[in-house]
Design a protein around this nucleic acid. Structure first.
Length: 259
DNA sequence: ATGCCGTCTGGTAGACGA
């Protein structure tokens, strides 16, 4: 089974690129973030032609999360983990016996912004959601754009990025709390290397200089960890390509599991 | 670096992203 997560930064702008990627990689499940479109305007056709069923939790202009799956989607839940969240940032379903959550964690903007306090509240609520609805002994994948670089290996230049909303002690501690509940950062089961990034700023030639961060994560419980065959990222997915010129600023992360 | 680039909007400049 192959399951991927991708912050597509607008599904309407990225449709051709996402569909091409699906044709090339044929994942069973793709979790998408920042779809930036209300559900009735989601470009469904290309996904459905390829045999994917869609589950949508969209929103105008900002945020928006979605699941595309070739396998049946059961027990859909949206609008978590914060009960009164005005932003569409969480979608979960059971697919092939695995509880799969697709998340778009708030960015935080600046350490002194209200939005950063919202990010911390959101992460606290995610821990509560795990405790109340989850089971560390059951198959679970929590994946998406966490807007947290887990440690300095995941930051191209830790000095340049010191004390930002992506790597503050507070957000890293909250990630550790999630891991402490019973999750493993899937990428770290296959590599200890630094410099594996999933996001590069559009600005200032960040990709050209490989000034990236690893902020798109797949966290898994032990029953899933024991099935990991591979966790892959591909820098080429950040490049301009003929026919699909415009890349997202994020690349997909793919988790391959043994049956 | 207030900047850069890209996306969105009852838009055409400003908000937001990370």
């Amino acid at each position: 089974m192959r399951i991927a997560t991708w912050n597509v930064n607008s599904i309407r702008t990225r449709e051709d690129r996402v569909l091409l990627w699906l044709d090339e990689h044929e994942p069973d499940v793709l979790l998408m973030q920042e779809t930036k479109v209300v559900d009735e305007n989601f470009p469904r056709e290309g996904f459905e032609e390829r045999g994917y069923t869609l589950a949508l939790h969209g929103q105008r202009t900002y945020n928006g999360v979605a699941i595309a799956s070739k396998l049946p989607i059961e027990d859909l839940e949206t609008g978590f983990p914060l009960a009164d969240d005005e932003d569409a940032r969480g979608i979960a379903a059971t697919i092939a016996g695995i509880r799969v959550g697709g998340l778009y964690v708030p960015n935080g903007r600046r350490l002194d912004a209200d939005h950063y306090q919202y990010k911390l509240r959101w992460l606290d609520a995610l821990h509560v959601w795990l405790r109340e609805t989850g089971d560390p002994a059951a198959p679970l994948i929590l994946a998406g754009d966490f807007n947290i670089a887990p440690d300095d290996r995941d930051v191209h230049d830790p000095a340049e990025w010191q004390d930002t909303v992506m790597n503050s002690d507070e957000v890293r501690a909250r990630l550790q709390t999630l891991l402490g509940w019973g999750l493993t950062d899937a990428l770290r089961t296959v590599s200890d290397e630094g410099g594996i990034f999933t996001w590069w700023d559009y600005r200032a030639g960040a990709f050209r200089f490989n000034k990236g961060l690893r902020i798109d994560l797949m966290l898994v419980t032990d029953p899933v960890r024991d099935r990991i065959e591979a966790v892959t990222t591909d820098r080429n997915d950040r490049k301009v390509r003929k026919g699909v010129e415009k890349p997202s600023d994020h690349i997909p992360v793919t988790l391959e599991l043994r049956d």
